[in-house]
C-alpha cells in the first residue's frame, strides 16, 4: 500500500482542480485590479528566516529538515506571510507601499482545523506601509470582494483586537501565560478564574480578565466593553473606538455585511498586533478566511513597518462552491 497518501494529504482530481483554477484566476484578477502584485516565494527556505520572530505556533506547524548542501536547517513553509515580509524588507524595500498577493501551497505538520488538508492552497494579500484604519479598511474590503466573487452565501465578519488581551495580560504577574491564553481562547470563565486565583492578582484585575470571556456578540458588545474597560485601561478604549470606526466605514461601503465582535479572540499564528478578523459563512461551521494587522513583522528582516494581511484556502472555497451548486 505504498501508494496511499499520508493523513491530511490529498490529490485534487480534475473536477475539483478545474474549480480551484477558476477561483484562482478570478481572485487573482480581483487582487491585480486592486494593485496587488503577484509574488512567488520558494517552497522552502532557511528556518532561521522562515521562523524569524519566534512565532511558536508557526514553528510547530513547520516541517524542518537538515540541508546537506549548506549544513543548515531548512523549513517547508506553513505560511506565506513571513516570506512576503522578507520580500518587503529586502527585495522590494525601495517601495513606499507594497501590495503583494500570492497563491501558494503551504504544508502543515498537523491539520489546523477538523477536516483540513495538511497541504492547503493559500491565497492571500499583504499590504505593507499603510498604517491604521486606512490599511485595515482596504484589506477587509478586498477580502469581502474576493469571498463574494467566490461564494453566493452570506458572510459574517468577526472583528477583534489583540491589544485588548495584550493590555490585560501585560500587567498580569503570571510566570507563564500559555495556560491562561488557552483558557481565554476557549472562553472558559471558570478555568480563567481558577488559573488566576492561584496567583496574587488584585480582584478588580482578575474580574477584568474573567469578564473578557463574555465580551463577544453584536455591535452592542463594543459599548458594553468600552464602559467596562476604558477608564482603567485607556489602550482598550482606543482599540474599541478603532473597531467602531472601522465597522462604521465598512457598513457604509458594504451595507448588507453581518458583523460579530470578539474581544478575546487570538487568531492565527500570534504575530498579530492589533485588528484581527475572521470570515464565516452562514451554515458552515469553519473559518473560511482570516487575517489581521501584523505591524513590525518585518523587524527580524531589518525593516519594521505597518503591515496587514489576509488569507483564505482555495480547496475549502472550491468545496463550498460545489456545495452551493448541489
Amino acid at each position: 500500500m505504498n501508494w496511499l497518501l499520508p493523513e491530511g494529504m490529498d490529490d485534487i482530481l480534475p473536477d475539483q482542480a478545474e474549480k480551484i483554477e477558476q477561483l484562482r484566476r478570478e481572485m487573482l484578477d480581483i487582487c491585480c485590479a486592486e494593485n496587488y502584485r503577484l509574488v512567488i516565494p520558494p517552497l522552502m527556505e532557511y528556518s532561521a528566516s522562515l521562523l524569524a520572530g519566534h512565532h511558536e505556533d508557526l514553528a510547530l506547524s513547520t516541517f524542518l529538515f537538515h540541508d546537506h548542501h549548506s549544513g543548515r536547517q531548512l523549513g517547508l513553509r506553513a505560511d506565506v506571510t513571513t516570506q512576503t515580509a522578507r520580500i518587503d524588507a529586502h527585495r522590494l524595500c525601495h517601495n513606499e507601499v507594497n501590495r503583494l498577493c500570492y497563491v501558494e501551497t503551504v504544508v502543515h505538520t498537523h491539520s489546523q482545523t477538523m477536516y483540513a488538508s495538511r497541504c492547503p492552497i493559500q491565497l492571500g494579500a499583504e499590504l505593507y506601509g499603510v498604517k491604521g484604519l486606512q490599511g485595515d479598511l482596504e484589506i477587509l474590503l478586498l477580502l469581502v470582494r474576493l469571498l463574494r466573487a467566490a461564494l453566493s452565501r452570506p458572510i459574517v465578519l468577526s472583528l477583534g483586537d489583540t491589544q485588548v488581551l495584550e493590555t490585560l495580560l501585560s500587567s498580569c504577574p503570571l510566570p507563564t501565560k500559555k495556560l491562561l491564553i488557552e483558557a481565554l481562547r476557549h472562553k472558559s470563565p471558570n478555568d480563567v478564574r481558577s488559573i488566576l486565583s492561584a496567583h496574587s492578582i488584585d480582584a478588580a484585575h482578575l474580574d477584568a480578565i474573567v469578564t473578557l470571556t463574555a465580551m463577544h456578540g453584536d455591535i452592542a458588545i463594543l459599548d458594553e466593553a468600552h464602559q467596562f474597560y476604558a477608564n482603567k485601561f485607556p489602550a482598550i478604549g482606543t482599540a474599541i473606538d478603532n473597531l467602531r470606526h472601522l465597522t462604521h466605514r465598512l457598513k457604509k461601503q458594504v451595507p448588507d455585511l453581518s458583523f460579530y465582535f470578539d474581544l478575546s479572540e487570538y487568531l492565527g499564528y500570534r504575530y498579530h498586533t492589533g485588528l484581527v478578523f475572521a470570515a464565516y459563512l452562514s451554515g458552515y461551521n469553519y473559518v473560511i478566511a482570516n487575517g489581521g494587522r501584523c505591524d513590525g513583522i518585518g523587524a527580524p528582516y531589518g525593516k519594521s513597518r505597518p503591515a496587514i494581511g489576509m488569507n483564505t484556502h482555495l480547496k475549502t472555497l472550491a468545496s463550498l462552491v460545489a456545495t452551493s451548486v448541489q
Binding site: 459574517v156 453584536d218 460579530y260 464565516y280 452562514s282 458552515y284 461551521n285 469553519y286
Partner: peptide, 10 residues
Amino acid sequence: INAAALHTKH
C-alpha cells in the same frame, strides 16, 4: 459550542 457556530448562529 462550535467556534464558528457562535459567530453565525449567535
